[in-house]
Amino acid sequence: MSAEHPAKAGPAPSSPSPVAGKATRRRSSGIGVPISRSRFLMIAVAVFVGLGLAWWAATGFEWVKPIFLPSPGSVAAQIAKLATDGTLLLDLQASIYRISIGFLLASALSIPIGVLIGSFRTWEAAIEPLVDFIRYMPVVAFVPLSILWAGTGDTQKFLIIFIGTFFQQVLMVMDNVKRVPADFIGLGRTLGLPDRKILTRIVVPSALPGIWDTLRISLGWAWTWLVLAELVAATSGLGYRITVSQRYFQTNTIIGYILLLGMLGLITDQVMKALEKILFRQEGHSQ
């Protein structure tokens, strides 16, 4: 059906409206062939709606037992109930507090270290292989150790989020810094700037859009580590609620919270993307 509407070009039309005779033969699928924005959205929404309908049908016709998969209505009602009695808000507060502190700590350390090892080979030799080694140690394996070290309070949550994000961030920031064009550094040197000023005035500002992207991506992972830490040992938070609900077979709470976590991740990602557009709007879309 798309072949009849070739002129409906998307946001990035590659060519002016084609000659009528050719248009019918233009490809509408294949590797790299662009589709219109409306078509993209339509397909994306259709997938969500389709899955929702399948869920609704599977529970409505009782193909599966509610204890394994409650109906969409039951999940919505349960979330509404937890929202009105304040449970949801308390869980959210605890979790958002933990992810904020853990993520900020990791970022505050990883950015300067990443800039350092991305700029100076000696520091790279000292730190990069070590970080590369540690990041392959599964975060999950650190959970028992973190409880031993830091108990079951907030500190242990910070620790797990930190271990999960810091080591990845360091390597990604290093990469962002290495992508700064060599001629930019050459420019700084021909202007007689000392290394310290080349770093602060050229390298860091130049790598900043990339570093922001690193933060956005690692923030997504931080949600996972937060929930992991809360699942294992906690007395509050979204992950804790999921564990407790399992004990009482409240499958609707579990599913509601999982969907909520997905939405929180999506929202933070979109917020970071929007900020990126505002912060680096003058730099075009080269990033």
Partner: peptide
């Protein structure tokens, strides 16, 4: 002995700072 302000350099890659 080193780069300096006595020599102005124009690179092929423009090197304008994008921000």
């Amino acid at each position: 002995l080193q780069p300096g302000l006595d020599r102005g350099v124009v690179f092929q890659s423009y090197t304008l700072l994008p921000w």
